[in-house]
Amino acid sequence: MKTMLRVHNLTYAYEKGHSPVLKNLNLLIGEGEYIAIIGPNGCGKTTLIRHFNALLLPTAGEVQVEEFSTSDTKRLLEIRRRVGMAFQNADNQIVGMSVEEDVAFGPGNLGLPSAEVRRRVDRALAIVGLTELRTRQPYTLSGGQKQLLALAGLLAMEPKLIVLDEPTASLDPESKKKVLTLLQTLNSQGLGIIHVTHNMEEAALADRVLVMDKGELVADGRPVDILNRVKWLKSLGLAPPTITELMWKLQQWGADMSTSVITIDAAFKEITSLLERLENSSQAFIPRKVDGNV
């Protein structure tokens, strides 16, 4: 896999002499990876992702996007057309007076000719499903539509990687599902995604989970291998996925089952197979029935 992003010994302090928010962080991200970043509040997630498109520059160490170092100010536009970023509050990211003009903002910044801007705007709006609303004024949109608009604004830049800071935090379940489904579709088409979230069910959708604590990367691996460490996650102040916690509780109680389960489907399989095993091997249920009749 080609390297998309390389973080090398990254240290960052907001002010000189203050204790660093990020400590000697190393990270390699390949092209097209779907990554979730989790961690308690104040662990440095947001500070870290702001280094990915040169909104922040390392105090020490280096961040590279493909072959460009983020501290090379001449390459700023090259970096930002590759790495798109959306923030929590969609309302504060919308700059256009209409939906389509907002999507045209990024391509306009790249200095593309009008016809190309038009093509990209139409494409991005079609992907997120806002084509019908393209002449609406942004303040008339719902929260979910605003988030989709922010996403369309990123896609119109045709980036290789998009970084999203809690994109579903203020959405209703319906819009949340829409955004998450969209992310999975985009990823399957080759777009890299970095998704910062507090929601472990959302983190479970990624290919790889990074856990941060106190400015350091404390775990990096497949979601199943990380999200099943129920006790450890709790000690960090994070909540494991509800379904994983249920499996963990059942295991603690004595049920013979794996806790490497992060989806409802996997949990269903695990429980039904346990029930089958019980029915086949023991008479545990039958005597009780007989007792009841006697």
Partner: peptide, 15 residues
């Protein structure tokens, strides 16, 4: 947000 979308002062193009 504007910087992240590549905004720089000066010339740009429109829809």
């Amino acid at each position: 947000a504007m910087q992240a979308r590549g905004y720089q002062q000066g010339h740009r193009t429109y829809l």
